[in-house]
């Protein structure tokens, strides 16, 4: 197969872990692995990445200091046209999702997004993706092409140890035109409210299974009894039932409590990514097939609206 080109991802002066995950995956697939690092003053990233790649191509230009999809796409398009890699791997992240579809359409290349597994069959990648919120998987087969572009889910492949020592090569910025149609302005941090759930020792967390916000007082009573804070899944925050700073998951907070009590949370990967640091996970969900039971230590397959009142009574008894 041809070479594999991996796009490095960084944000606010930090190299993102997904970069090393993608490079690890590329190494497993075989072939020569080139990391493309677009940035400004990123020598320290380059030397870290070199441990995971056969070659690190660095384009150092102020244009790449912060992510701008149009600048990134212009650079990638030129480099792909020139080097003709067999495979291009990009993180299925806030940055990558903004880029993969338009880049591939511009170059008329087959692509897919949010891969959870990639294998090679001859010169061609075959991708596994999830459908219907992770309830089933599907296999993607590409049309024949010289280059395939794949967006890979974060944490789909754990980053390995590296062990390579790739050559770091600075190349001229292939983007000569000024990018004007889209401009990066600034980052705005998510506000932190009265409770910082990343520091909570006990979390009672609610999902769609709560059904209506009028059921929240029951959850509040349980949390107060246990001395726990309340967090929730994206659905509950989007519905306005809990403030945004209580959201657990990829686009919310990563938590590490002693107990994570997941009530009516199905356990989509976007959510469970945020709870992996919990000591003990207990899930109550009426769907026995809910993925959350794969991440929980203990589970109750039942309606949370029936179990929670009983649990309140039992904890009161326990406390005497």
């Amino acid at each position: 197969m041809g070479d594999i080109l991996v796009l490095a991802e960084h944000r606010q002066g930090e190299l993102r872990e997904v970069t090393l995950e993608l490079l690890t995956l590329a190494g497993q697939l075989g072939g020569n692995v080139t990391a493309l690092l677009l940035g400004s003053g990123v020598d320290d990233f380059a030397s870290k990445i070199a441990g995971f790649a056969d070659k690190v191509m660095v384009v150092d230009d102020p244009m790449f200091a912060d992510f701008n999809q149009m600048a990134y796409q212009a650079a990638l398009a030129e480099i792909i046209k020139n080097d003709k890699p067999g495979l291009v791997l990009i993180g299925n992240t806030g940055q990558g999702v903004d880029l993969v579809g338009s880049l591939a359409v511009e170059l008329d290349l087959p692509f897919t997004t949010d891969a959870i597994a990639v294998v090679m069959e001859g010169d061609k990648p075959v991708v596994t993706r999830q459908y219907y919120g992770g309830k089933i998987n599907g296999t993607i087969n590409f049309k024949d092409a010289e280059t395939y572009v794949i967006g890979v889910r974060e944490a789909a492949v754990p980053a390995g140890e590296g062990g390579k020592s790739g050559e770091v090569a600075k190349v001229d910025n292939p983007v000569t035109a000024e990018i004007t149609a889209r401009k990066f302005l600034e980052y705005v941090e998510a506000a932190i409210g009265d409770v910082d759930i990343t520091q909570s020792a006990l979390l009672v967390s609610v999902g769609r299974g709560i059904r209506e916000d009028k059921n929240l007082p029951m959850i509040e009573e349980l949390a107060a009894l246990m001395g726990a804070d309340i967090s929730g899944s994206r659905a509950v925050i989007d519905a306005g039932w809990l403030p945004a700073d209580r959201q657990v998951g990829i686009s919310g907070k990563t938590v590490k409590p002693k107990l994570y009590l997941a009530l009516g949370i199905s356990g989509a990967f976007q959510h469970v990514t945020g709870i992996k640091g919990s000591d003990l996970v207990v899930a109550i969900n009426k769907d026995p097939d809910a993925p959350i039971f794969q991440y929980a230590d203990f589970g109750i397959v039942d309606d949370l609206l029936k179990v929670v009142p009983a649990l309140i009574d039992k904890i009161k008894e326990t406390k005497g």
Partner: peptide
Amino acid sequence: KVGRELEGGLLEMNEIE
């Protein structure tokens, strides 16, 4: 002016034509 939501709830503000 568009705010894109990234991981961790960070908003990336952009100006787009």
